[in-house]
Design a protein around this nucleic acid. Structure first.
Lengths: 336, 336
DNA sequence: CTGTTAGCGCGTTCAC
DNA sequence: GTGAACGCGCTAACAG
């Protein structure tokens, strides 16, 4: 069924049907009512593929995340979706699974569908995507980090500085034998930035780095449970395990509890991200607080601005930092 | 840039360029190489909107889930995506946020983009989507439940029977004062099915239902933490709290631990779904095991079969049950 | 193996 | 307020 069919049925032209479906165009109220009624009765669904080809507007933006199974990214995606919906756009989600090659393939596949904007979660990108993005001439927003060389717009925070701040705060609490537990194979990722921040904070206090890694990203609770052994064999005198993320920290804590160890008395543990489990788990987990929803909202706002600006000249690159502050909780609160 | 531009540059026709991009069509190897080289150099990205309009194949399937922030659904979506990718199709994800009206709007919006299949997470559907789906003439798969009146294909399990089985097993362990904790406003949802299963198991043992509800779906860890008070004020003699999901159960356990109560000695707790937290948390949580990935793979398989069958006549509706069995763990293991 | 023709179903643009 | 002609960029179907 096409617009033509609706039109013929009412003795009008397809163009009038098309206009009746856009709320802003001028159609006689009675005509519009008749059109909408016919559409309802016949169960007609417009073909947006044809519409997009003709109007050169696909009506959607694409977002790439490394994982859906992560409350942070899903919250960001949710907020982004709402922000874009307010501008009449849908959000198409792509999952890179922490794989740069997959990201590059996805970018290519998605650009073929002509998104009107694209949001990338900062991690090292395949260099081949840069010319593709440039040619697409659409707003690009990188989120969840502050990359050294941004592609265009950015909404995020420095994972390095955030982790450095957390470790500095823990050192100020009196900890010194702090061992870092992160993912393996994390070159050019947010995880690597966090590890660097840890190293910097340790160095600033005259302490050497104590690094352990386990599993490929994303770091899971199970990785954490196995990670405790890794940490203890490498650095048996560890006082505090600084984990790359909250779920990993939760796994370490669970492993301690299985051994009958009290956290933080026997061993302290910190995470990153302020996931729900960091607040609810017992003990509550010391972490870095991030507002994942805010990142999505800000990104949506920038895309909106970019659309408005496009009429004249492209919006100058926007770098929008969001807060990422240490939050000390029971998992590192020992009486000294 | 269009195919025409590539073609002119090489002194061939656009059609040959088009064919060179499809691996199965017959083009001279040298021609194809030249085309691919030119495309690479110029950074040409085909316009799939035009391609879809012409070929009447959009190249994607749509999946609707109630929430992305749920490891189960994200795992299902991941497996489904892989299964479809093997058939050269992309997956478009829609988030209904446990809202039937939103689901209906999404179905309409997605059908306008002509998906080649649609996967719905079973929950009560808005009746208006049925005619829309029927007219679309595409495979429809409902997942994560066994609906009484399936739309077409189904991959799932009976949430009612699964919960009934779990409660029966717990009753067999010696529990009788079992209180159910689920979401409010869960009419026609998987949550309601689970509650019904609980009631049936209790009735079968000659016990009356003890029902509590808190929060709207999805049930979160925070809901669980608050839920303990709700349960105890309504049923102070509760021995075991049967929760609609694992995160809710984890919240209840955390609340117990904050009170200094030992689970399961002072109060036992069960969940549903076998989330990672149910295995890793201490104590491990008694639950119902579901293989979320299997649901995605099976759904992808059915869609594949439906495509193959379409040449002749549509595939007869497939109802594919997946296992959902009780798994008793420490959170309900008391010495009696 | 390659080219030509003719749409796919809409929206833009103009005319009325 | 409404209609007609045209084209968006690609591919199916056929011809060669």
């Amino acid at each position: 069924m096409r617009m033509q069919d609706i039109a013929r049925r009412l003795g009008i032209s397809a163009m009038t049907v098309s206009r009746a479906l856009k709320s802003d165009s001028s159609v006689a109220p009675t005509t519009r009512a008749a059109v909408l009624k016919a559409i309802e009765e016949l169960g007609y669904v417009p073909n947006q593929i044809a519409g997009s080809l003709s109007s050169r507007r696909s009506g959607f933006a694409a977002v790439l995340v490394p994982s859906l199974n992560n409350p942070h990214f899903s919250e960001t995606v949710l907020a982004l979706g709402s922000a874009l919906q307010a501008r009449g756009m849908q959000l198409l989600i792509g999952n890179t699974e922490y794989d740069r090659r997959k990201e590059a393939e996805l970018v290519r596949a998605l650009l073929a569908r002509k998104p009107e904007a694209i949001i990338l979660t900062s991690d090292g990108h395949d260099p081949r995507i840069l010319p593709m993005l440039a040619k697409a001439k659409i707003p690009v927003v990188e989120i969840w980090d502050l990359p050294a060389r941004p592609i265009q717009h950015v909404v995020g925070f420095s994972n390095r500085i955030a982790m450095r701040g957390l470790i500095a705060a823990l050192i100020a609490q009196g900890y010194s034998r702090i061992t870092y537990l992160g993912e393996a194979d994390d070159a050019d990722t947010r995880g690597a930035s966090r590890r660097l921040g840890y190293c910097e904070a340790m160095a600033a206090a005259g302490l050497g780095p104590r690094l352990c890694s386990i599993g490929r990203p994303p770091a899971t609770m199970s990785d954490g449970e196995r990670g405790l052994d890794t940490v203890l064999s490498a650095f048996p005198d560890t006082e505090l395990v600084a984990c790359v993320s909250d779920p990993l920290a939760f796994g370490v804590i669970a492993a301690c509890q299985r051994r009958g160890w009290v956290v933080p008395d026997r061993l302290a543990v910190s995470g990153f991200g302020d996931f729900e489990i960091a607040r609810i788990g017992v003990p509550a987990i010391t972490t870095v607080q991030i507002d994942a929803g805010q990142i999505g909202r800000e990104a949506g706002g920038i895309i909106g601005e970019a659309f408005d600006a496009l009429r004249d000249l492209p919006l100058a690159p926007v770098i929008r930092p969001v807060p990422a502050l240490p939050c000390l909780r029971a998992s590192t609160m020992i009486a000294r």
